[in-house]
């Protein structure tokens, strides 16, 4: 059971703004080039409408649970996932990476961003738990309303960082 909180729960706009600050800090300090796209801060439904989601081939997820529950989803093109892995590991474009290495880097990136949101926005509301980051089948439906998505162009690929609200048991 989530602990009761006397504070007003954050709305979607506040959560998305916190997500954007987290992405900015993690991406800039973990050394990879990124640029917000024109679709930046568009709702997920809009992304799907314009067909951006269709080109994404892997997803890393971290769930949070407390006074509000949901998940942060990193949806990447293949190149975008490699950009993140190479950035985190400070490798050049010529270095080959195994799928496991790319997925692990993507999960760790999602973990850092979600941890930043938890520390700065969720923790003041009461006790929150984060799941261990995990990979999800591409295209699997995420139940519940999406707060929105932040879409970034990386060195060669794209990443959509999405925030969804829902109330389901934590993945473990």
């Amino acid at each position: 059971m989530a602990e009761p909180t006397s504070q007003a729960l954050p709305g979607d706009a506040e959560l998305l703004a916190a997500l954007e600050r987290a992405v900015d800090e993690v991406f800039s300090s973990m050394v990879f080039a990124f640029e917000a796209l024109a679709e930046h801060r568009s709702p997920v439904a809009t992304l799907e409408k314009i067909g951006v989601r269709a080109s994404f081939d892997r997803e890393a997820v971290v769930e949070f649970r407390g006074a509000i529950s949901g998940q942060v989803v990193f949806r990447c093109t293949a190149d975008g996932a490699h950009d993140i892995a190479r950035g985190l590991l400070m490798l050049d474009d010529s270095t080959a990476l195994a799928v496991e290495e790319v997925n692990d880097a993507l999960k760790e990136c999602a973990n850092m961003v979600t941890g930043h949101v938890k520390t700065n926005v969720l923790d003041p509301l009461g006790k929150f738990d984060l799941s261990i980051p995990f990979m999800k089948d591409v295209g699997a439906q995420v139940p519940g309303p999406a707060c929105g998505a932040l879409v970034y162009r990386l060195q060669q690929g794209l990443v959509s960082v999405e925030l969804w609200r829902r109330d389901v048991p934590l993945h473990s």
């Binding site: 993690v26 300090s29 850092m112 930043h116 938890k118 520390t119 923790d123 984060l130």
Partner: peptide
């Protein structure tokens, strides 16, 4: 070394015997 820099979590770890903490992302 953790993504979760929340005061309660850190105080718990320190009370149990951790000597300090660093929040990810770090420098």
């Amino acid at each position: 070394v953790t993504t979760e820099g929340g005061e309660a979590m850190m105080n718990n770890a320190l009370a149990l015997g951790a000597n300090g903490y660093v929040t990810k992302p770090f420098t």
